[in-house]
Design a binder for these strands. Structure first.
Lengths: 220, 220
DNA sequence: CTCCTTACTTTGATTAGTCAAAATAAACGT
DNA sequence: ACGTTTATTTTGACTAATCAAAGTAAGGAG
């Protein structure tokens, strides 16, 4: 059985490789796991021995199919737990990531399945992040963002790709939740500012960095 | 923050002291935690340093008020999680103890409170074990058992005090669930056999040891 | 091509939790 | 009171995960 430390390493590799093909750098992994780089090197070598990853010294690391399977299962637990916490326990959007971080390592596959059924087999969590299927399929569609979309076109918000409580709180307070309709009225590369406007709302200014974390689609 | 190992030590001390006054022997703790006695000695000394227990060398160990507080909180989590798994996720009676064993260390107090509300503030878990209140009150009423009760008196089953899957399965298959009505038709100390009978059922034989794990009250 | 920066790896030490086995103390029977 | 049994404690060693700091490689800048 993988320890919860191992599960975390694998999960973060999956998240950092956005789909699983590219090499993940040791530095990025260390950053994501809040650990010094030397620790990552040590751990990655152990994970290579157990067949979960392929380690290219001085270049990076990549999940093997076995490692990817474990990572997807953990991610599925994480996101389904988030759904449960928000939809059933009515918890706060911004707080559930931290909670799920613990629970993802404690719930069994049996509980996972029943939770999935209870929630009606959702396809995304409350932030719009796709939930891997039982079979390990993960929607890896690449969306445009408020930082990259066409100006003045009507858009629908699909997903928020920053789980920090502050950012989620900001998003919530300005009604930029997944499902909402918006359009970008202005984008200025020089000042790094994007102005967005909800159908019936006042214009809202945000940085390019922030805008890039809000994924969108052309409205229906 | 107490690690989940520490939480387990404290929880088992609480369970073994049936209320919290008597000294718990190191051996009993080692047995309950599936660890060798030497490990318990080491750990108990650390717990004494952190003020969670009082250690009487060569005699045993006892929870301090601080330790008891932690233990009750863990037990509350364990039992509320069991309620959730059985009542909401419709999981099997006999399997939930193992699941809860993991989850009790992963859920926050926030989630605990919401779970408690969702379940309607239950007073006992599905096995009839009392759930400690938020304030740390634990019903420590001493019940009679099928091994100690008066013969032929109508009884109500209150609680099953053995969480092993086999025993729970046996209990379930013979309809001896908490809430059910029974009476003891015969008890033979010599052969160590107890015969119980549900109001509308065939007589069932069980050992004194097994009968002692089924707590009862006089029928309403 | 050489030096420098930066990322990565190595090394040695630390902490939590554990076991095996030897040492000790208390309790017990005769 | 003496030796034996049994529970407990000690000791030394091990694993997983970590950090600090020293060492090494690879890719630019000049």
């Amino acid at each position: 059985m993988a320890t919860s430390t191992v599960e975390n390493y694998l999960k973060h590799m999956l998240l950092l490789s956005e789909g699983g093909e590219e090499l993940v750098s040791m530095g990025a992994l260390a950053e994501a796991l809040a650990v010094v780089p030397g620790t990552v090197t040590t751990m990655v070598k152990a994970l290579a021995d157990s067949g979960h990853v392929e380690h290219r010294p001085r270049q990076g690391v990549r999940l093997t199919p076995a490692g990817r399977r474990v990572a997807l299962n953990v991610l599925r637990k994480h996101r389904l737990v988030e759904c449960f916490l928000v939809n059933v326990l009515k918890m706060d959007w911004a707080a559930v990531d931290t909670e799920a971080e613990q629970l993802e390592h404690a719930i069994s596959d049996e509980v996972l399945d029943r939770l999935d059924a209870l929630l009606g087999h959702p396809e995304t969590d409350p932030h719009g992040d796709p939930i891997p299927s039982r079979q390990g399929k993960l929607d890896s569609q690449v969306y445009a963002t408020l930082a990259t979309c066409v100006v003045e076109k009507p858009l629908r918000i699909i997903r928020i790709t920053d789980q920090s409580a502050e950012f989620l709180l900001f998003v919530e307070q300005n009604g930029l939740l997944p499902g909402e309709s918006v359009r970008v009225t202005e984008r200025n590369l020089a000042s790094g500012l994007v102005t967005a406007k909800k159908t019936a709302g006042r214009p809202l200014a945000l940085s390019l960095a922030a805008a890039g974390k809000i994924l969108i689609q052309p409205a229906r």
